[in-house]
Amino acid sequence: GATAVSEWTEYKTADGKTYYYNNRTLESTWEKPQELK
Results as ranks from 00 to 15, higher is better:
P33N: 02
R24Q: 15
K12Q: 11
G1D: 13
V5T: 13
R24I: 15
T3P: 12
T9V: 15
S28H: 12
S28I: 15
N23A: 07
L36A: 04
S28T: 15
Q34F: 10
E35V: 07
K37L: 14
K17M: 09
E10T: 09
N22L: 00
E27Y: 04
V5E: 12
G1T: 14
T9W: 09
N22W: 00
E7N: 05
W8P: 00
D15E: 09
Y21V: 15
Y20W: 15
P33V: 02
N23M: 07
N22T: 00
T18M: 05
R24A: 15
N22R: 00
W8A: 00
E35M: 04
K32D: 04
E31F: 08
K17W: 04
K17D: 07
E10M: 09
Y11C: 07
D15S: 09
L26H: 15
A2L: 13
A2V: 13
T9P: 00
E35D: 10
A4G: 11
W8G: 00
T29G: 03
G1H: 14
E35Q: 09
K32Q: 08
E31V: 10
S6M: 09
P33K: 01
N23D: 10
T18P: 07
G16A: 02
E10R: 03
Y21G: 02
L36D: 08
D15A: 07
E27L: 06
K17V: 10
T3M: 13
Y21Q: 08
E10G: 02
E27K: 06
T25Y: 03
E7W: 08
R24M: 15
Q34P: 14
Y21D: 03
L26N: 15
S28Q: 14
N22Q: 00
Y20L: 01
Y21P: 01
D15N: 08
A4Q: 13
V5I: 14
N22Y: 01
T29S: 10
Y20N: 00
K37I: 15
E10P: 06
Y20S: 00
S28A: 12
G1S: 13
E35T: 06
T13R: 04
L36G: 05
A14N: 09
K32I: 10
E31W: 05
E31M: 08
L26V: 02
Q34Y: 10
P33H: 02
E35K: 04
E7S: 05
L26A: 13
K37M: 15
A14G: 08
Y20K: 01
N23E: 10
T29D: 01
L36C: 05
K17A: 07
N23F: 08
S6E: 11
A14P: 13
T9L: 09
K37W: 10
L26I: 02
L36S: 06
Q34R: 08
D15P: 01
Y20Q: 01
G16Q: 03
P33Q: 02
K17I: 09
T29V: 14
T9Y: 10
A4V: 14
K12F: 08
A4F: 10
E10S: 05
Q34W: 12
E27W: 03
N22K: 00
T9G: 06
E10Y: 04
K37R: 10
K37F: 15
P33L: 03
L36K: 03
T13S: 06
T25W: 02
T18W: 05
Q34A: 15
T13M: 06
T3E: 13
T9F: 08
T29K: 07
L36V: 06
S28G: 12
T29P: 01
Y21M: 07
G1E: 12
G1I: 14
L26K: 15
